[in-house]
Every structure is written in C-alpha cells, then in structure tokens.
C-alpha cells in the first residue's frame, strides 16, 4: 500500500473539521462543478448541432467560412479560457491549502 511519509498520527480528521478546509472544498466545488457541466454541454453542442441541424451549420459566416468550422474553432478557445480561469482560481486554493497545513503543523494538538 501507499507508504504515507508523514507519521501515523497525521491529523487528517482534524484538518477535515477545520472551517477553512470546508470552505476550500466549497470553493472548489462551486467552480469545478458548473465549469465541468458547462464545458461538457458546450462540447456536445457541436456534434448535436452538426448532426441534427446540418443546414444551419453549413451557412457561411465569414466569406466561405461556415458556422460549423467557427464553432469547432471556438471549442479550442473555450477550452483554453476555462483552463486559464481554473489556474487563476487554483492559485488561490493552493494558498488556502498552505495556510491550513501551516496552522495544523504549528498547533498540532489544539483539540
């Protein structure tokens, strides 16, 4: 099994009960869940539009470039944008996690 490098007395449950930790989980969930739903919906909009409404997607928008190609291209920018926002948020979460771990190691037996 995994050798956990910290000793057996690792205070997992104490951290889990900290309000800051609960706040970290809430904050992560509040972004990751809607962001995931959004990108899945955005992604499947393409095959669904192309498959069921091909005539609409064949309409030229810029010169010969049609809606289907533009939508497909926009998927790339959608993915990059979500990744960018995620990294920005994750930087804050890293900071929160660092604080939680620092507090835990400075006063290990406050319960």
């Amino acid at each position: 099994m995994n050798q956990i490098q910290t000793p057996d007395s690792t205070p997992w449950s104490r951290i889990a009960q900290r309000p800051q930790y609960q706040e970290l989980l809430r904050s992560k969930r509040a972004f990751i869940l809607p962001a995931s739903l959004f990108f899945v919906a955005y992604y499947f909009a393409l095959p669904i539009l192309v498959g069921w409404w091909p005539e609409m997607m064949k309409k030229p928008v810029f010169g010969p470039v049609n809606a289907a190609y533009l939508f497909a291209l926009s998927e790339f920018f959608m993915a990059w944008t979500i990744a960018y926002i995620y990294v920005q948020k994750a930087g804050k979460w890293d900071e929160q996690a660092r604080q939680i771990l620092a507090e835990e190691s400075s006063k290990p037996s406050n319960h």
Partner: peptide
C-alpha cells in the same frame, strides 16, 4: 483521501 487529494498533505 480527500484531505490528501485536496491539500497535498502526505
């Protein structure tokens, strides 16, 4: 597991 996965402890 959750604490470890989310904070990197251990």
């Amino acid at each position: 597991l959750q604490v470890r996965a989310q904070t990197g402890l251990g």
